[in-house]
Simulated assay, not measured.
Amino acid sequence: MWKSIASNFLTLFILLLVAAGALVGWGQAQYTKTGPLEDAICVRVPLGGSMALVSRDLEAKGAVSNGRIFRIGADYADKSQQLKAGSFLVPAGASMEQIVDIVTRGGQNTCGTEVVYRIGVTSRSAVVRELDPTTNEYIETAKFTPGVDEAPQVYVEARDDRDVRYRVAVAEGATSWQIVDSLRALDVFEGEIDETPPEGSLAPDSYEVQPGADRAALIAKMTAAQEKILAEAWEARDPNVPLESPEEALILASIIEKETGVPEERRQVASVFTNRLRQGIKLQTDPTVIYGVTRGEGVLGRGLRQSELRRETPYNTYVIPGLPPTPIANPGKLSIEAALNPDDTPYIFFVADGTGGHAFAVTIEDHNRNVAEWRKIEAERAAQN
């Protein structure tokens, strides 16, 4: 009898093991297979939230088929205690395994509300925008000029939301004064900036920041980034460029930055100035003259006067030979690389061509024809206004 009982018990035990194995296998398949989500969604993980709370939210939104399997899978992967607060984009068809990775990976939030402080060449603005998870595109909900306009209610409410992301986007060609003046007007920052950094020393880029961040710390970060960019570009420079130091490269790069906003022609513009430096021809570029007038503090807002073009100043490249004494703006990485590795061309002239780019020329005759064409375009545009 005991043998029969033992045999039956062993059989039952084996069946239970097989069933358990099958259940585990089924659970693993459910955990790793494509999920039921038809459209991307934004999932918010509150500060102090739990995997149980997140699983219920995901289940309610149709992102996971079984919240219990989601939690067990997270436990098995030792990720239940790694949950990160924030707002995260969950793509359509994401498996439970992928979603667990998304909400425990950390780093920058990938959806929800974002405030972008844009520091441009002619203006600054603060933009509040929301990511539409179905299109993966941002929808602007408010825009204003910090330090000038009253902050809209949408922005005020965003400042009280811990999940909101903040970025400072600095445009290529902005001056150091413009950057410092803008940072002082942004209420997301604290601390003082004692003095304006040297022109050209700040790297234009998009920087993620946190409320209460120190203004001087961001300036230091931008400075370190520009130093790294310049050092790497100088190391990889064309040995034949007529530039004696990284500082001269930064000066030329700033001129290139102000002369063109078309990425694919930066090296052509660089070739014109390089050829002029080699041949001892004055650079004759308006942006340097303008900088001599404004010192980078705001926008000139008018055309240059003939008296300003004739007056000898350290920045009037119609009068002085070679480069001005300092950069005239903060150039981006592409302009720095263009200054140190220009195209090999015979060009020594260029003028706007009406498309946003420039017409290049080797001889003064060709250049004069290009200038005449540009004047014609200017006159036609003026007549239409």
Results as ranks from 00 to 15, higher is better:
residue 350 F to E: 01
residue 158 A to D: 10
residue 154 V to R: 12
residue 110 T to Q: 12
residue 263 P to M: 03
residue 105 R to V: 09
residue 126 A to W: 00
residue 320 I to N: 04
residue 170 V to K: 02
residue 357 G to N: 08
residue 368 N to C: 05
residue 132 D to I: 04
residue 271 S to E: 06
residue 165 R to C: 06
residue 222 M to D: 02
residue 236 A to M: 15
residue 72 I to L: 15
residue 29 A to C: 12
residue 286 D to Y: 11
residue 361 A to W: 00
residue 211 P to V: 07
residue 206 S to D: 11
residue 7 S to P: 10
residue 242 P to I: 04
residue 321 P to V: 12
residue 30 Q to Y: 03
residue 188 V to W: 06
residue 118 R to W: 12
residue 236 A to Q: 15
residue 199 E to C: 06
residue 244 E to M: 14
residue 361 A to L: 02
residue 212 G to F: 09
residue 144 F to W: 12
residue 254 S to R: 05
residue 67 G to C: 07
residue 46 P to S: 09
residue 251 I to L: 07
residue 161 D to E: 14
residue 152 P to R: 04
residue 385 N to K: 14
residue 131 L to K: 00
residue 324 P to N: 14
residue 14 I to N: 05
residue 246 P to G: 11
residue 105 R to K: 15
residue 53 L to Y: 11
residue 242 P to F: 08
residue 318 Y to R: 04
residue 341 N to Y: 11
residue 169 A to P: 03
residue 206 S to C: 08
residue 193 I to T: 10
residue 77 A to P: 00
residue 350 F to Q: 00
residue 129 R to A: 01
residue 173 G to I: 03
residue 140 E to G: 10
residue 38 E to C: 12
residue 181 D to K: 01
residue 92 A to K: 13
residue 275 N to D: 07
residue 179 I to H: 00
residue 209 V to S: 03
residue 202 L to I: 05
residue 79 K to D: 13
residue 41 I to V: 15
residue 53 L to F: 07
residue 299 V to L: 07
residue 85 A to Y: 05
residue 259 E to P: 01
residue 158 A to M: 08
residue 130 E to T: 07
residue 375 R to K: 13
residue 291 Y to M: 11
residue 78 D to G: 14
residue 271 S to M: 03
residue 31 Y to D: 03
residue 32 T to W: 07
residue 216 A to S: 13
residue 11 T to E: 14
residue 205 D to I: 06
residue 202 L to S: 00
residue 62 G to N: 05
residue 365 E to Y: 08
residue 89 L to I: 09
residue 57 D to K: 02
residue 293 V to C: 04
residue 292 G to C: 14
residue 355 T to P: 03
residue 124 R to F: 06
residue 322 G to P: 09
residue 266 R to M: 05
residue 195 E to G: 13
residue 82 Q to M: 06
residue 329 A to F: 04
residue 209 V to Y: 05
residue 37 L to P: 00
residue 364 I to G: 14
residue 320 I to M: 07
residue 263 P to C: 08
residue 4 S to F: 14
residue 235 E to F: 12
residue 338 A to K: 03
residue 209 V to W: 02
residue 69 I to G: 07
residue 137 E to S: 15
residue 364 I to E: 15
residue 349 F to R: 05
residue 103 V to C: 06
residue 46 P to E: 06
residue 2 W to F: 11
residue 228 K to P: 11
residue 339 A to S: 06
residue 1 M to F: 15
residue 258 K to S: 09
residue 71 R to N: 10
residue 106 G to K: 13
residue 261 G to C: 02
residue 161 D to R: 13
residue 153 Q to A: 15
residue 52 A to D: 15
residue 285 T to K: 06
residue 229 I to S: 07
residue 78 D to Q: 13
residue 296 G to F: 01
residue 156 V to H: 08
residue 154 V to D: 11
residue 90 V to A: 04
residue 259 E to Q: 05
residue 221 K to P: 04
residue 328 I to T: 01
residue 236 A to L: 15
residue 45 V to E: 02
residue 326 T to C: 11
residue 316 N to W: 03
residue 55 S to H: 02
residue 167 R to P: 09
residue 223 T to K: 14
residue 227 E to L: 01
